[in-house]
Design a protein around this nucleic acid. Structure first.
Lengths: 234, 234
DNA sequence: CCAATATCGAGAGCACTGCTCTTGCTTTGC
DNA sequence: GCAAAGCAAGAGCAGTGCTCTCGATATTGG
């Protein structure tokens, strides 16, 4: 485990990366369903069986791509946050816009993670950390604005205790200093955000919504409002 | 084209239905990715090439299943509406619950229509009518409540004109008597509803939200509130 | 009623897939 | 320097979507 572990390990890393790159390329052009190990190997000038030294199965390759994709959206969200100002609503919508932008640029990768779960029907455990990043970014925005810019119970009937229990559990494991009801509201907004993005990416808005930029901006602001962020003029 | 068109056409209908049934069965157990024409044919006691007399390709079979699935959710929504009372919010949440219930009962069929679009990457034109049914049900609920129970511009910044143009277009083609801003709000809620359902069905709520019934009920009520329906005590 | 026609099922076959196993070659660690 | 481990290559298996041909059956026009 020295810092320079010989040509072998180095080569292994490079080949692994090359495989993922080529797989991502095919993913972008053909979609996940048509991603073929043999085609990837062929394009890389290796025989298909050699590829199995790096990924034990097609699903394992896909899982690796899934984790990378989660990290990519997460990074996009965090990067947008770094470049945003201090106004809570602006920070919130910046995260939303970043997610949408990444999704529109990488529709197939987006479909891989937020569309139908392709392998096994349950996302592998290894993905959860990366998958949480966008949610954490959203929570961070509201947390930074708390308590000044957040109205804890925004004109809503009180939540049932089971939901509050979930939110309280979340509050403790994430060590977040937001009240449980706000956290529950963020969870809903989190899911709703991806509903908006998915409908656009997957073509559900075709012939329904055409001014998608403006529509999304409005909806993202509405989500900010739902989680208690004070929009201008209220 | 008489009313009884001989044994041939009758047989054709039955075989077509049997193929779709068997395909749906395999879809439910294995998922769309593993749906195999040969396996369907095998299970039906026919040879694979014979199946091509009924569906020219695998994607065509999937498209047929997609349309059926859209109609099934739509019917679930409409049926729920028929059994709901007169209170607008209750009617709205009844549609939401029906969609969620159907999705949880038929996760793979749900994934087929609201997950990654499997064939060609664009839903065929033939699906649009069936795909619209849930949205139309939601619009119907708000329209029935209008104008008494709807606040047209619920504490929101005025919409940009492009969004209003889209909504106005929609208003005319659907011949609906709701103001354009309300229609735009419904479109957002429509997408957000499926965001909530997708996150639950696709496992994104695992280890995050456990009290899903109550959580969803709350979120659905929030959506009703967003479109301007007056929730109790406001 | 019978012949022309259209429809259908069966089978063989093509090109492709994921995956396994064996055979040698090369790099690594002692 | 040598045994051990890592590696690419090739053959092979079972499965896939899809096409084509060939008889059998059903429908329809004369």
């Amino acid at each position: 485990m020295s810092v320079i572990q010989g040509a072998r390990e180095r080569a292994r890393r490079e080949v692994t990366a090359a495989i993922k790159d080529e797989a991502r390329r095919q993913l972008a052009t053909e979609g996940a369903a048509k991603l073929s190990l043999r085609a990837v190997a062929r394009e890389l000038g290796m025989v298909s069986s050699a590829l199995y030294r790096y990924f034990p199965s097609r699903d394992d390759l896909l899982t690796a791509l899934i984790i990378d994709a989660y990290d990519a959206v997460g990074e996009a969200a965090e990067h947008a946050l770094a470049g945003a100002g201090a106004a809570p609503v602006a920070r919130w919508t910046a995260v939303c816009r970043a997610v949408r932008g990444w999704a529109l640029e990488h529709p197939h990768e987006y479909a891989l993670i937020y569309g139908s779960p392709v392998p096994g029907y349950a996302a592998p455990q290894a993905t959860t950390a990366s998958a949480a990043r966008v949610g954490l970014a959203l929570i961070g925005v509201v947390e930074d604005a708390y308590p000044a810019g957040v109205s804890p119970a925004p004109a809503a009937p009180s939540l049932p205790h089971e939901v509050l229990d979930d939110a309280e559990e979340l509050r403790k494991t994430l060590d977040v200093r937001l009240p449980a009801p706000v956290l529950a509201e963020i969870a809903a907004a989190w899911a709703e955000l991806f509903g908006l993005v998915s409908f656009e990416v997957f073509g559900q808005f075709n012939r329904v919504i055409e001014a998608r930029d403006a529509f999304f901006a409005r909806a993202a602001t509405r989500l900010a409002q739902n989680v208690g962020l004070a929009v201008g003029g209220e």
